[in-house]
């Protein structure tokens, strides 16, 4: 059976949308999708070493005043931090995380070592477009 492909483009770097992205990623991994994640603009910032494990460096995209409620609920429900969804997905399946070169430079992430170790490479946008063309599921957040 041919492996299905998913391309997840993260323009967002907000903790609420990244959590949603992590949940979707988990669903796709359960179905054995081959997944390429492209982190653009704010998405790239979230994967910086300084930010990946520090959600306080990230904001909420929506209902910013509800952040304490949101965080408390995640804790109560044993929902892991957004970055852990991505780490677990990489351990369980074929997941590649790519950072846009321009986005990296915007936030001071010029080299791969500036990012969390789960990031595979720094790429140009044409590769992202190609993967979007090839994917069975395309998600842009």
């Amino acid at each position: 059976m041919e492996t299905k492909k998913m391309c997840l483009v993260l323009v967002t770097g907000s903790m609420d949308k990244l959590t949603a992205a992590g949940v979707m990623l988990s669903g796709a991994i359960a179905d054995d999708y081959q997944i390429d994640v492209y982190a653009l603009i704010h998405g790239a910032r979230a994967f910086l070493k300084a930010n990946a494990d520090n959600p306080e460096n990230l904001r909420m995209a929506e209902n910013t005043d509800l952040r304490p409620e949101f965080e408390a609920a995640l804790k109560r429900l044993n929902v892991k931090p957004w970055i852990e969804f991505f780490r677990e997905a990489k351990q369980m399946g074929d997941v590649k995380i790519h950072v846009c070169g321009l986005a990296g430079k915007i936030w001071g992430g010029e080299k791969l070592e500036d990012f969390d170790p789960i990031v595979d490479d720094i790429v140009g946008i044409n590769e992202c477009i190609t993967k979007l063309q090839e994917a069975d599921i395309q998600v842009v957040l």
Binding site: V23, S26, G27, I29, A30, L77, N78, V79, E88, M92
Partner: peptide, 14 residues
């Protein structure tokens, strides 16, 4: 038990 979606699904998958 005690984990929210997608925890049980991933646990089953593993």
């Amino acid at each position: 038990r005690g984990t929210a979606c997608p925890g049980p699904l991933l646990a089953a998958k593993k």
